[in-house]
């Protein structure tokens, strides 16, 4: 028998619920991960079983699974967050945290050198496509701004914790390990979308003094973050045990906060610069 549309929809939503559970439990300890995935699979199965018994229609069941899935996403993320916060161990700083700062610096340098090739890139098909399309540029710009919010927002939270202005009861290491993956993710999107924005009109950005200022500050900010992750944050466990953060680290965090704020201002002023 060929399954009808609503049956296929039910299978698809059941798959979606399972896929989401797989995604947000990825990387957790085996018993926790397996228990949660099994629990969701069982819940979805019970719902599908009612359809099989004829107690409800497959379309309604599919809609219910989908709604329950989407309405529960914030709680799933918070559950993961809470689990991470409760079980994080003070291990060494992972390699990708070191890569975050270096990534900012390298992308800043890349953009700077790309600016010198602006005459060449401005005529490229990619540049023309972004520039001439009605929706590509606004979409990229929107993604860029959202990613900046995530990147700078989460980085600022880490800096504020190091400064001791927020989350004082949470160890610096826990805040770093929980938030810096989001900083890295945000950074990746910022770099990619930023490169596309630059590609839209390289000639314009190459001659813009605010663009130069932004790139310069990105370079400094990236090097500061890299130095912090490479040298300073390796001692985060010691700070948590001692109960205070050294003045030098707090100065670096304050500097980082100011710099990200200035980078946003410079980025905004690019639109008005010549």
């Amino acid at each position: 028998m060929v399954p009808d549309m609503s049956t296929r929809l039910l299978s698809m939503t059941a798959f979606l619920a399972g896929a989401w559970a797989t995604l947000y439990t990825a990387g957790l300890a085996d018993p926790v991960r397996q228990t949660r995935r099994r629990e969701i699979a069982s819940d979805v199965w019970e719902c599908c079983a009612e359809v099989g018994c004829g107690e409800r229609r497959s379309g309604a069941a599919a809609a219910e699974i989908l709604v329950r899935l989407f309405l529960g996403i914030p709680d799933d993320i918070l559950w993961r967050w809470e689990y991470q916060m409760n079980t994080s161990t003070n291990g060494p700083v992972p390699w990708w945290l070191n890569a975050t700062g270096l990534g900012v610096s390298l992308s800043a340098l890349g953009l700077y050198f790309a600016a010198s090739l602006s005459a060449l890139t401005s005529g490229s098909s990619l540049s023309i496509a972004i520039r001439d399309s009605v929706w590509i540029f606004p979409t990229i710009l929107t993604v860029h701004v959202i990613a900046i919010c995530a990147f700078v927002g989460f980085a600022a939270m880490v800096d504020l914790r190091v400064l001791g202005w927020t989350l004082r009861r949470t160890p610096v290491m826990d805040v770093g390990q929980s938030l810096l993956p989001w900083v890295t993710g945000g950074l990746a999107v910022v770099i990619i979308s930023g490169a596309f924005i630059y590609m839209s009109d390289p000639m314009r950005y190459a001659g813009n003094s605010y663009f130069d200022v932004k790139i310069g500050m990105l370079l400094v900010g990236g090097l500061n973050a890299w130095a912090c992750h490479r040298r300073v944050y390796q001692r985060a466990t010691e700070w948590d045990q001692a109960g205070h953060v050294p003045a030098r680290t707090r100065i670096a965090s304050g500097f980082s906060l100011a710099l990200w704020a200035l980078i946003i201002v410079a980025g905004r002023l690019i639109a008005f610069g010549a």
Binding site: S42, D43, E46, E64, R68, L71, P74, D75, L78
Partner: peptide
């Protein structure tokens, strides 16, 4: 199990939807 409690919550709260998975 989770599904049975979700159904009971729906019945007790007189709501149209079961509680979201994550919640």
């Amino acid at each position: 199990h989770g599904y049975s409690i979700a159904k009971e919550l729906k019945h007790a709260g007189d709501t149209r939807l079961l509680t979201a998975y994550g919640t």
